[in-house]
């Protein structure tokens, strides 16, 4: 946590940052002149939006597991499988590997996403045992894997368009595929609504309360820094790292 003492946020400097194009503006500016994005130092409604999408996503995830995902017809027998029943059946037939992949992709990852988003939103209000860096990593993880859950829906689409062999065999998509897709979309919206800057705000302040802005040195030019100004109050120079 040695960095936190030196890093200053736009909010602390009385500025507001554009989350889309990284431009900085004086606090109170309504829109970013560079990219036109709406400026908000912190999205006050962020947590409400997160929870709203989260609840809708969870509501869709329940029917996604109760209704059949695929309707498979082989000659005269028709079977309708939910996600979990399908995986269990595969395991019975000895395909433990595929069964495990399906369980991880369709059960473990979605449930994990719900838990992580809920945990992050909860920690902003009530603090957390995890460091902000760790929570930020979890947030990145959820943002990254969120879209990949759509894979299940695509597999259903490919299987049911491909396996159309007349009387021999046919696969039809089940109603659960709709609920599963909706659940993925709502979870993505929930994660997108989360204002990740809140993670770092929840950190207890490292420095004492800041003086008025007029007491601060100009930040832009190295030469302008007056000698009595404390070093850590200036924004850090951007760290440069060669591409690995």
């Amino acid at each position: 946590m040695e960095i936190a003492g030196k890093v200053r946020t736009a909010r602390e400097m009385g500025l507001v940052a554009c989350a889309r194009c990284t431009r900085v503006w004086p606090r109170g500016t309504a829109r970013c002149t560079r990219c036109g994005h709406k400026l908000q130092s912190r999205d006050r409604l962020a947590l409400q939006k997160v929870w709203a999408w989260w609840v809708v996503g969870l509501m869709c995830y329940i029917p996604a597991n109760m209704y059949p995902m695929l309707r498979t017809r082989m000659l005269a027998t028709t079977s309708e499988d939910t996600i979990i029943a399908g995986a269990v059946e595969l395991a019975h037939h000895g395909s433990y590997g595929i069964a495990l992949v399906i369980l991880v992709a369709s059960v473990l990852i979605p449930v994990g996403k719900f838990l992580i988003i809920a945990g992050l939103a909860f920690s902003v209000r009530h603090g957390s045992a995890l460091s902000p860096e760790r929570r930020h990593q979890l947030y990145e993880l959820v943002e990254y894997i969120g879209r990949w859950s759509m894979i299940d829906v695509f597999v259903v689409a490919i299987l049911s368009s491909l396996v159309q062999l007349g009387t021999l065999a046919a696969i039809q998509p089940g109603i659960a595929s709709l609920f599963f897709a909706l659940s993925v979309i709502f979870t993505m919206l929930s994660a997108q609504s989360f204002d990740s800057r809140l993670i770092f705000d929840a950190d207890p302040p490292v420095e004492p309360p800041l003086p008025g802005l007029s007491a601060l040195p100009p930040v832009a030019h190295e030469a302008d820094t007056s000698p009595e100004s404390p070093g850590p109050r200036r924004p850090r120079d951007l760290t440069e790292r060669p591409t690995p």
Binding site: T9, A17, R23, H136, P235, L238
Partner: peptide, 19 residues
């Protein structure tokens, strides 16, 4: 001009001089 020389991290709001 000062503001133009700054960049804010979109994920955590930290402000830096642009180098």
């Amino acid at each position: 001009q000062d503001l133009q020389d700054l960049i804010a991290c979109p994920t955590c709001d930290a402000v830096y001089h642009i180098v």
